[in-house]
Amino acid sequence: MSPSSPPPIWKHVFNFTRVVFALLVVNKAGGLIYNREFSAGLNKLNSNDLLILAGTFHGVHAITRSLSPLPRPPYGSFAPTDVPVRPTGLEVLESTHFRLTCFQTATGVKFLLLTDPPQPNIDVMLRRIYELYADYVMKNPFYTVEMPIRCEKFDRGLDGYLRVIARA
């Protein structure tokens, strides 16, 4: 409510108001195994609601995957494609004030990134997050697959990466 000073002019010029709100990781059974907030802005959900969100999204994703039409071969090509094309499910869910982007790995782990709608390069960010996951979670001998992620270095890596993004 308080009259805040207008943002500096360069923010408008370069459209630097990028925000990454939170990251959720959902395992292939639909359970929430990681949840971390990076900047305030979203209303807080309690952990139960977060679990429901993860489970519901998982279900909707599965349904949208079976909805997905089979891709047609490119126009003019007669050869059937050798590589089976995996149908993708729901990828982006957008509201006025946030966007939820989903990235599913080959093994069925889903990364859900909650960002500001104008945030660019989300696919690059998700790829980098996947890399961090591969490094600091999957190469950690004390992590059990499908279980909640408690890896200090993964947290630190995400902080290092997403804070830099937010500042850039």
């Binding site: 490094d135 600091y136 190469k139 950690n140 001998p141 004390f142 408690r150 890896c151 200090e152 270095k153 993964f154």
Partner: peptide, 9 residues
């Protein structure tokens, strides 16, 4: 470099 030791250990 990739190992995070759990708190209890």
């Amino acid at each position: 470099s990739y190992i995070s030791v759990p708190r209890e250990m």
